[in-house]
């Protein structure tokens, strides 16, 4: 790692201020950032830890939604949403491994927007609102491609508001080495429709599969997916699976997610 300064503010305001310094970077749980720093692929002047900001931690009900502090760890989300949003709880319990889940945070994951991460699928399928120190961003506007989001420089995800669907499930088919999603599909049925978000598959990162959503809106059954397919062009092709394989998996995994949710 390159040398950097370390700061651990206790309020959002102080964190924002610290992040105003040139080349300062926010540190969530560090489960992706620290390995990246070890490879010397990032060169922050200062790392601003968000782990000391009490108001950014924890899960609480918020009307028909749940509000999750941006610095809440995966393990905390798993425990806190087991009853209120079981599909989200199960997703959180499948990220990384137990030790990673004790450090990694929802805000860190969403800010990083790895194309194979799990949380982006949950946020997009739930129609989440990404709350930052400056504004609120709808999930549909937030994810903007590989490792790219609507966040501005120095902007912090303070909270994530997840509407709780009537039925939901996250189905993850893992890449054998990293155990990230080779394809992960989050299906969420709301009173006014179905949202299907796919992670791991696309070169553009997480996306909504609108054809599946339309088909499932009328018939929330795995059979509704029959005959639908995503275009293999635009899928990720690598040593773990071709574009065609990923496109095929999107259909299979979506059906499984629907079956489990229905």
């Amino acid at each position: 790692m390159y040398e950097f300064e370390f700061e651990k503010p206790s309020t959002i305001a102080d964190a924002v201020k610290a992040l105003g310094e040139e080349d300062a970077q926010a540190l969530g749980g560090g489960q992706t950032l620290i390995p990246t720093l070890k490879q010397r692929l990032a060169m922050p002047s200062t790392l601003v830890s968000l782990s000391g900001i009490a108001e950014m931690r924890g899960v609480c009900p918020d009307g028909d939604a749940i509000a999750i502090g941006g610095a809440t760890t995966h393990a905390e989300v798993e425990a806190a949403t087991a009853d209120s949003y079981p599909a989200l709880s199960a997703l959180a319990g499948q990220i990384g491994d137990p030790a990673v889940r004790n450090r990694g945070t929802i805000g860190g994951s969403l800010a990083n927007n790895d194309p194979s991460a799990c949380y982006p699928a949950a946020a997009l399928a739930s129609g989440a609102t990404i709350v930052t120190n400056a504004r609120e961003i709808a999930a549909d506007d937030y994810f903007q491609g590989l490792f790219t989001t609507a966040l501005d420089e120095g902007e912090i995800i303070t909270n994530v508001r997840m509407p709780v669907p009537q039925a939901a499930h996250y189905e993850k088919f893992v890449q054998p080495a990293s155990r990230f999603a080779l394809v992960g599909v989050f299906v969420a049925r709301f009173a006014d429709g179905v949202r299907v978000a796919v992670t791991g598959a696309s070169e553009e990162g997480v996306f909504r599969w609108s054809e599946a959503e339309a088909a499932l809106a009328g018939n929330f059954d795995p059979a509704a997916i029959d005959g639908l397919s995503v275009d293999a062009e635009g899928m990720i092709g690598d040593l773990h699976g071709t574009k065609a394989y990923r496109a095929h998996l999107v259909g299979v995994i979506t059906k499984r997610a629907v079956a489990a949710a229905a």
Binding site: G30, S49, S51, D97, A99
Partner: peptide
């Protein structure tokens, strides 16, 4: 996971946590 220790009672990968944290 060869580096797993407990931090405040929870298993953590000590190679992926800053000492300052």
């Amino acid at each position: 996971g060869a580096c797993v220790v407990h931090v405040d009672g929870k298993a953590v990968k000590s190679c992926t946590m800053l000492a300052a944290e």
